[in-house]
Simulated assay, not measured.
Amino acid sequence: MTSTAIRPEGHPAMEHGRSLEDTVVVVTGAGGGIGGAITRLVLEAGGRVVAGDVRPDALAPLRDTWDEDRLTTHVGDVRGEATADALVSAGVAAFGRVDSVVANAAVGFYGGVLDYSADEVSLMVDVNVKGTVWLARAAVRQFRAQGDGGDIVIIGSVAGLLIGGGKEAVYAATKGAQINLGYALDRELRGEGIRTTTIAPAGVNTAFAAADGRFGDRDPSEGDFMEPSDIAQAVTYTLRQPRRMRTELWTMWSMSEPH
């Protein structure tokens, strides 16, 4: 016996998700653990990527693996508005358009509010907050020119919801700013078909997490933390969502982390 799916007359078939084939995604901090994982997963799904990072050597493994018809790279500091404009322009020049941007580049230092130098405070604010704003502005200009919507994905942190650990006040402030920016952009832009999603993970096994000091002498790979690929999967799931829906904020925790 065979069964036939029945749906009301005129009701569209279920849409199981959008393909990433040939979509163009800009990723900042693409030379790092999470950014690299996002870049690779988008490419493996058939997408095209503009990979940005401030460190030329960090982008070399991507360039060595993927051809120029799928990947273009740009070295620049996200603290400057010109870098965001250049990343979006690179996507248009190489692939004809930009469909999504992922604001992933971030800086964090662990310690009490008086433990940071003035330069470290400025670096966190400029990279995490201004870098996200500049990329969003560049994306919106391009999305409006194209006229068919787009996606802005912000990689935030649960620290921005004040449910992370202690001794991260300035970092938490920058991540809170990202989350509030995401909510505000959603209200401003969703009527144009531009979706804004903030993905806010807890501890992730990356060199970034190891370097900021929060784990002391312990290597985060020794703990039961999430992996960069987990965050990358969340990003690609977000981009694959049918255009009829959107995700505003997605918090992510490992099973072992209490909050």
Results as ranks from 00 to 15, higher is better:
R246N: 10
T2P: 11
V158W: 04
G193T: 08
S100Y: 10
A93M: 00
E120I: 01
G216D: 13
G165Y: 04
V158M: 13
A145T: 14
E192K: 01
S3N: 08
A145D: 13
L20E: 10
A13D: 14
A37S: 14
G33T: 03
Q142T: 09
G149E: 12
M252R: 05
P56V: 09
T247W: 05
R144W: 09
A177W: 05
N128A: 12
R187V: 08
K167Q: 14
G108P: 06
N104Y: 04
T28Q: 05
A106T: 04
G112F: 03
A60W: 01
R218G: 00
E168C: 05
G76N: 10
R63M: 09
G147N: 04
D186W: 02
A232G: 12
S89A: 15
G223E: 14
G17T: 02
T238H: 07
H74L: 15
R63Q: 15
L59S: 07
G111C: 07
I34Q: 10
G213A: 05
L62W: 07
Q178S: 05
D67G: 14
W134K: 00
P228G: 12
V121I: 15
G52T: 11
A200T: 06
M252W: 03
T132N: 09
G160D: 11
N104T: 12
V235W: 12
W66L: 08
R48I: 02
T238S: 09
G17S: 03
S254N: 08
R187F: 09
L161M: 11
Y110S: 10
S122M: 12
A84W: 02
R141A: 14
N104A: 11
E168R: 03
V153W: 07
V75N: 09
G52F: 01
G216E: 12
V121K: 08
D64K: 10
V113G: 03
P201D: 13
K130G: 00
E120Q: 15
V88H: 05
A37T: 05
L181P: 05
R218P: 00
V133T: 11
S221F: 05
A136H: 07
M14A: 14
S256G: 08
D69H: 14
T65I: 02
F215I: 08
H11I: 05
G108A: 15
A232C: 10
Q178T: 02
V127H: 11
E21C: 01
S229P: 00
R79K: 13
E257L: 09
G191H: 06
A139K: 07
S89C: 00
L249A: 00
D224E: 15
G35F: 10
D151Q: 12
V127K: 10
V113K: 01
V102K: 04
W253F: 15
L59G: 07
S3F: 11
G46M: 04
F95S: 04
A58P: 03
R63T: 15
S254T: 12
L71R: 09
A13C: 02
E44V: 00
T28H: 05
V50W: 07
G46W: 10
G111W: 07
V121P: 00
G213R: 07
G76F: 07
R70D: 11
V88Q: 02
F215M: 11
R7V: 13
Y110A: 08
A60E: 15
V25E: 05
R246H: 15
M255V: 15
L71P: 04
E9S: 12
G131S: 11
H74I: 13
G36R: 07
M1N: 11
P56M: 08
R240E: 14
P61R: 06
A13R: 14
G17H: 00
I34K: 01
